[in-house]
Design a protein around this nucleic acid. Structure first.
Length: 416
RNA sequence: GUGGGCGUAGCUCAGCUGGUAGAGCACUCGGUUGUGGUCCGAGAUGUCGCGGGUUCGAGCCCCGUCGCUCACCCCA
């Protein structure tokens, strides 16, 4: 073959047939519940002014401090490939005055995100997310609805083996008070230097440590949940009761840590059982200070980001995606030039009626064309030759059973 | 950024203590006239990741390099 083959950049996820169909299916499953809840699409650039993320996501987060693809454009501006979606949506909402009309502003997006990390199972440098944001309303009912939308997406895919972790991070005052006590608690632990450095950046991180000795040590650490203000507690209690009413099961996880600084109040994460180390298939929460931090009004919002790549991995691990759901309805095998013309015509009419039709072009032997039809997984096959054209009638063969029936070309649509 | 595993046909891999490469799947054609999935036959495909070294001789040994992969960190 050729000389030097050029490969895809390190750590990117690519989807080629046949798996790309499954990817598309998962993506649509995750978007649809948002559409049905009245969320509207928003298409944003994949690169933004770097400052959007340093300010919005938080300088101290790993995402900003070491995982961003940042470069200078030709005008000397610092540009960053978006590492997450919420900050960009807030920027656009402020810039286009979407916060001036009726609230909440409800938006969904789907697309690629970028993080310069070491790749791993379920972790890519370019990955895909579906996200929604509901801006300008702090009713606990919308918190529950946002969670229900995410859950409906995973259910639509057919996923079962996942759980929902739920907590409340409270307001700024609650967090400040808790942080003082937590830092004091950590100070009296016997920790190695690296761990201490991590704790200095974000003490909550220690709750997430995978080492058993650290987990044990953190068992007696003060929990943020115990520092919540009355209003935060009430809000959270309502979120839980709405979820109960919806029959959405959740696990209270007061030790949950989120990687982005802007989260406040209700915070959640969907975790799949069958995935490897990167088992979070989606997460989100409320963000009270983000809009104003980015120069907008003091509006609260809530949203989520769901990992399409990981949801697909989870679906494959559960074996819930069946490939025949992507197959064509009918496969037409034309014999001869006139038949090709006729096949084109029949196909375009049936396609206009919503059917998926493939035609075997290329003058292959009938046997080969039949094989092609078989491989494609198409439900039905017809052979179109001179006889069929003169009689206006075809043998409609159902591939799964092998049975055939005589059908007029005009009534093919009804027979499919 | 740190550690482990692995790089052989399109794919999954085999290749024993070094003797210049194989299987299965997939693909193409055929097993007489226009109907697939099974079976049988035939065929095509590799600078064994790349570079250097040891050796009469290396896919197998040594060094380097690149890539992939899993895990840590962190997260979707």
């Amino acid at each position: 073959m050729a000389k030097q083959k050029i490969q895809a950049p390190k750590g990117v996820s690519e989807y080629v047939p046949p798996r790309s169909s499954a990817f598309e299916f998962v993506r649509e499953c995750l978007i649809n519940p948002a559409r049905k809840a009245g969320y509207l699409p928003i298409e944003l650039p994949v690169f933004e002014d770097t400052e959007l993320f340093t300010r919005g996501v938080g300088e101290s987060t790993d995402v900003v401090s070491k995982e961003m693809y940042t470069f200078e454009d030709r005008g000397g501006r610092s540009i960053t490939l978006r590492p997450e979606g919420t900050a960009g949506v807030m920027r656009a909402v402020i810039e286009h005055g979407l916060d001036r009309g009726q609230l909440p502003s409800k938006l969904w997006y789907a697309g690629a995100f970028f993080r310069a990390e070491r790749p791993q199972a379920g972790r890519y440098r370019q990955f895909y997310q579906v996200g929604i944001e509901a801006i300008g309303l702090d009713d606990p009912a919308i918190d529950a609805e946002v969670i229900a939308i995410a859950d409906a997406g995973f259910k639509a895919i057919g996923l079962n083996k996942y759980r929902l972790d739920l907590t409340s991070l409270g307001d700024a005052h609650s967090r400040a008070a808790h942080r003082i006590d937590l830092v004091a608690f950590i100070a009296q632990l016997d920790l190695d230097e690296a761990t201490r450095a991590r704790a200095a950046i974000n003490p909550l991180r220690l709750f997430d440590d995978k080492r058993p000795e650290i987990r044990d040590a953190m068992n007696n650490a003060p929990l943020l949940m115990d520092y919540l203000s009355d209003s935060s507690k009430q809000h959270f209690a309502k979120v839980k009761s709405y979820l109960d009413a919806l029959g959405i099961a959740y696990t209270l996880n007061p030790k949950m840590v989120r990687g982005l600084d802007y989260y406040t109040g209700t915070t959640f994460e969907f975790v799949h059982e069958l995935l490897g180390a990167q088992s979070g298939i989606g997460g989100g929460g409320r963000y009270d200070g983000l809009m104003s931090e980015l120069g907008g009004q003091e509006l609260s919002g809530i949203g989520f980001g769901l990992g399409i790549d990981r949801a697909l991995l989870a679906a494959e691990a559960e074996g819930v995606i069946t490939s025949d759901s992507f197959a064509s309805d009918l496969f037409i095998i034309p014999l001869g030039d006139l038949a090709k013309e006729k096949a084109l015509l029949i196909a375009s009419e049936l396609r206009a009626a919503g059917k998926t039709i493939e035609i075997a072009f290329g003058d292959r032997a009938l046997k080969g064309a039949m094989k092609g039809a078989d491989k494609s997984g198409a439900r039905f096959v017809i052979v179109l030759g001179d006889t069929e054209i003169t009689t206006q009638s075809v043998e409609l063969k159902e591939m799964k059973t092998g049975s055939t029936s005589s059908v007029k070309i005009d009534s093919l649509l009804g027979a499919l």
